[in-house]
């Protein structure tokens, strides 16, 4: 085994995922470059990858989030941008984690909507999410009630 020397120790990398009707990933990238000040920015198909010192990265992210706060999402990433170990070009296929993001991308519109609707809402007024439907059969009493409720 060979010795391993990390490339960017002491940095953080974060994904910025843009799921917006009003701003495109390109718009967000332009804004990010404007305020980058040494933070590394890489565009990709769903937004940006931002790398640098934690406070700098957070500063850039705070700026770009302002563009559409409820439609821009942020997630930590373990690897620096363009790392060959995670890159589709070198692996042949997407790293497995990509499909997880792909899945959650489909849910983001509900989250955006939820963030907007709950912004000035008394949270206690919102019913708690229903727990997963139990895989139980309909009990006989309920069934009877349903039958009785039917018009003849």
């Amino acid at each position: 085994m060979t010795e391993y020397k990390p490339a960017y120790p002491g940095t953080v990398t974060r994904y910025v995922v843009v799921e917006s009707y009003t701003v495109t990933p390109a718009d967000v990238a332009i804004r990010a470059y404007e305020v980058a000040k040494g933070v590394m920015i890489k565009e990709n198909c769903f937004g940006l990858i931002v790398m640098g010192k934690e406070e700098d990265v957070d500063r850039v992210i705070a700026e770009v989030r302002k563009m559409d706060p409820t439609h821009i999402f942020v997630k930590d990433r373990g690897f620096p941008p363009g790392d060959a170990r995670r890159c589709r070009a070198t692996l042949g296929g997407a790293r497995p984690g990509f499909h997880g993001i792909e899945f959650e991308m489909g849910i983001l519109p509900y989250i955006s909507n939820g963030l907007e609707k709950t912004e000035n809402l008394d949270l206690s007024a919102v019913p708690a999410p229903a727990p997963a439907a139990p895989e139980r059969r309909l009990d006989v009493y309920t069934l009877k009630k349903m039958i009785d409720a039917q018009e003849p």
Binding site: I107, P109, Y110, I111, N113, G114, L115, K117, T118, L121, L123, V126, P127, A128, P129, A130
Partner: peptide, 12 residues
């Protein structure tokens, strides 16, 4: 969440 209503509940 599987729809908008559930999305609101989820976020809340």
């Amino acid at each position: 969440p599987k729809n908008e209503a559930e999305g609101v509940q989820f976020v809340a």
